[in-house]
Simulated scan of single mutants.
Amino acid sequence: MSQSRNRAAVLGSPIAHSLSPVLHRAAYGELGLDDWSYDRFEVDEEALPGFLGGLGSEWAGLSLTMPLKRAVIPLVDEVTETAASVEAVNTVVFTDDGRRVGDNTDIPGMVAALRERGIEQVESAAILGAGATASSALAALARICTGEVVAYVRSAERAAEMRQWGERLDVEVRTADWADAEQALTAPLVIATTPSGTTDALAAAVPERPLTLFDVLYDPWPTALAARWSGYGGAVVSGLDLLVHQAVLQVEQMTGVPTAPLGAMRTAGERALAAR
C-alpha cells in the first residue's frame, strides 16, 4: 500500500452506532500508523455514487454496512469471488493503480471467529433467520460444515430464498418453520442471525449440555439466548467476535500489514460497548 494512502472510513445509514472507527483506530495505534485516519459517514444508497466519486488519492479503503453492501457492487471495478458468492460487499480497497476492489470479510471473519474457539469443522448446523447475515453464515458454513444445515424461517418466501442460497453456495439446506426453532438448539453449531429480541423466547429451551452458539448481535449483550447458553456451559461466539475478526481482515487489506492486532482491537471494542 502506498504511503500516500492513509484514509479510511465506514459508510452506512444509520452509522452513528458503528464500532468500526474504534476498532480500526485501535489497530492504527498499535501498529504505529500515526498518520492514518478512520472516520464514519452517514451515506445512503442514493448518496453513495457521489461520495465515491469525490474521493481523492489519499483514500486506502472503505468499510460498508447496511444498506450499501449490495448497492456498491456496480460502483467498483472488481468484486472478489467471496463477495460475489453472496452478492454483498462490506470492504472496498483502493489499489495504487486506481482500481476499486470490493470484498466481503464477514464470511472469512465468521470462519476465523469460530476457529478461534477451536471449531474447525462441524457435521451439521442450524441457522436462525434468513436475512443478509444468514446468507453470509451459509457461505461460512460452506467452508466448515460437512453435512446438512437447517434454516428456521418465518415465511415460505424466505425458505425458498435460503434453499436457493444453499444451491448457489453448494450447501445442503433444509428449511423449517420458525415455530419449531427450539429444535435448532440441539445442533452442534447454532448461528443466530435475527434482530435483537427475536430469539429471547428460545432461551428457556436451551438444552442442559449445549454445544456452540454463534449469536451475531453485540449490543445489547449478552442476549437472553447467549446468557442461558453460556450459563449451561455452552461455547458462545458473539457479534463482537465477528466484528473484530472481519475488521482485522479489513485493516490488513487496507494498510498492507501482514497481521492486524486482534487483541488490541477486541479490547477497544469491549471498552466502547461497556461505556454505552
Results as ranks from 00 to 15, higher is better:
185 L>C: 14
254 M>R: 12
242 L>V: 01
228 R>N: 05
229 W>G: 02
187 A>P: 14
195 P>C: 06
207 P>T: 04
205 A>I: 00
199 T>P: 05
268 A>E: 08
186 T>N: 09
183 Q>I: 12
251 V>G: 03
267 T>Q: 14
252 E>T: 03
215 D>W: 07
224 A>N: 05
274 A>Y: 07
254 M>I: 15
226 A>M: 03
188 P>F: 12
211 L>T: 12
240 L>D: 04
265 M>Q: 15
257 V>M: 06
244 V>I: 05
272 A>W: 13
233 G>W: 01
239 G>A: 00
195 P>G: 07
193 T>A: 11
218 Y>S: 01
236 V>K: 08
231 G>L: 12
249 L>P: 02
195 P>K: 05
186 T>M: 10
210 P>E: 03
225 L>H: 05
207 P>Y: 11
240 L>H: 01
256 G>N: 09
249 L>E: 02
208 E>Q: 10
199 T>G: 05
259 T>D: 15
192 A>Q: 06
220 P>L: 13
250 Q>A: 15
224 A>S: 09
216 V>M: 10
251 V>T: 15
211 L>M: 12
188 P>T: 11
242 L>A: 00
207 P>V: 09
217 L>D: 01
204 A>G: 14
228 R>A: 13
219 D>V: 05
200 D>E: 04
253 Q>D: 14
203 A>I: 12
223 T>C: 01
198 T>L: 06
219 D>H: 12
223 T>R: 01
215 D>Q: 01
257 V>G: 05
207 P>R: 07
200 D>L: 11
184 A>G: 11
231 G>H: 07
204 A>D: 12
207 P>N: 01
230 S>I: 14
268 A>F: 07
187 A>Y: 11
254 M>E: 13
185 L>Y: 03
244 V>S: 00
219 D>F: 03
239 G>E: 02
